[in-house]
Simulated scan of single mutants.
Amino acid sequence: MDTVLSIKGLSKHYGKIKALDGLNLEVKKGNVFGILGPNGSGKTTTLGMILDVINPTAGQFEWFGKKSGPATRKRIGAILEHPIFYPYLTGRQNLMIVCDIKQVPYERVDEVLLQVGLEERKNSKFKTYSLGMKQRLSIASALLCDPEVMILDEPTNGLDPQGIAEIRDLIISIANSGKTIIIASHLLDEVQKVCTHFCVLQRGKLIYNGLVEDVGKGNLSVEVKADDERLEEVLGACNLHLEMKRELDKYILTMHDGYSAADVNKYLFDHGITAKHLIVKTKSLEKQFLEILKDQEGGKQ
């Protein structure tokens, strides 16, 4: 698979503050790549440097196997902050102005408005748009030059649940059209739903890089409840699990390899207990993210 973005030793220092410290990263063609991290971790700094908005202190990056330049930047569409549109102009008129700036034919305006689901409101003034519609117009402006790569910084920030769902569906639609997408976000659930790959930054350092589909792999967790006061004692005596912890009225079992929820159910039944709630727990990206941060902090002690 072709490498779209290659980052080697990229750093940005502000005096003694290391906003980014020796980042090495690769994004392949067709990836939907999520960059995660707490506030101040270096996400926006990274995007700023790979878009030539911020000058790096050290290191380098390449787009499509070449150093960044006007030719490569034309192949990238980006939204770092909410673009400023004219409130008294329509969505269509605003995009026509962007076309003039980017030297793109006006024919692209109606195409991208249809793509982002704003064709019915294209003649409405920008000031009448909801926050979600404004964000979709921003994405439309980035799509005007039909880029190969889309870079989105916190694309669902501040949106209500409906707006988040709409932007999520739009990102998936854009990815399905064959574009590579890089997203910086702190909404872990949304990243898990749209991204193929993700990395985690903390204090400017890369501390994890992997596939979203690998989240949840490892020891199986089983959640169990029963209306029997012997449940804790019986579960505690079994040899099916590595760990057991209580959460309110249920127990979470981290299973030994080779054992399943069916084994727990049979074990309880053999001891005269009928489970009223028995499900396999899938690890969320949020839980893995917190575990990664915790492991990193523990390694420093």
Rank of each mutant, 00 (worst) to 15 (best):
M150S: 03
V4K: 01
Q115N: 05
R75G: 04
E247A: 12
L10N: 09
V98G: 01
P70Y: 07
L170F: 05
V264T: 02
H277D: 13
K16V: 09
S6P: 00
G163I: 07
V109A: 07
L95T: 08
E154L: 04
N55C: 00
L268N: 10
P161R: 04
V194W: 01
I164K: 09
L268D: 07
V27A: 10
H186W: 11
K28D: 05
P147V: 04
E119Q: 15
N39V: 03
T45E: 04
L10C: 09
E120Y: 10
L5A: 11
L231F: 09
T57P: 11
G258N: 05
S141V: 01
N209T: 12
A184L: 10
L253N: 11
K28T: 08
P70D: 10
K217H: 07
T44V: 06
S185Q: 12
H241L: 07
Y208S: 12
F64V: 13
S11E: 01
Y86Q: 14
Y208E: 03
D21M: 00
S124P: 03
T156H: 06
M255I: 05
C195E: 06
R136K: 15
E107D: 15
S173R: 15
T45K: 02
M49P: 06
C238D: 10
K67G: 13
G91R: 13
I139T: 05
H271T: 14
I183N: 03
I139R: 04
L152K: 04
K266Y: 08
N157Y: 03
V104R: 07
A78M: 09
G298K: 13
I174A: 09
G272V: 12
F198A: 11
D295A: 11
G34E: 07
C199L: 10
C145G: 15
Y267S: 04
D227N: 15
R92H: 14
V222K: 06
E154C: 07
G37K: 07
T45M: 02
L235F: 08
I167D: 07
G258S: 04
I279V: 15
E213Q: 15
K16M: 08
N219L: 10
N94G: 11
P56Q: 01
V234T: 15
Q103Y: 01
I252A: 03
I97V: 15
T46E: 02
W63D: 04
K67E: 14
K193T: 08
S138P: 06
N31L: 01
G236H: 02
H277P: 00
S130E: 06
S11I: 01
G272K: 13
L51Q: 02
W63Q: 07
F289A: 06
K43V: 05
L285K: 09
H82L: 11
R246A: 11
V280Y: 00
E213Y: 10
S177Y: 01
A78C: 12
Q288Y: 09
D189G: 12
G30E: 12
D21Q: 04
E247L: 14
R73M: 14
V109F: 05
A175Q: 13
F85A: 01
L211M: 14
T128I: 09
K179S: 09
L268M: 12
D110N: 15
A78N: 04
P161D: 11
Y86D: 12
F269H: 12
L144P: 10
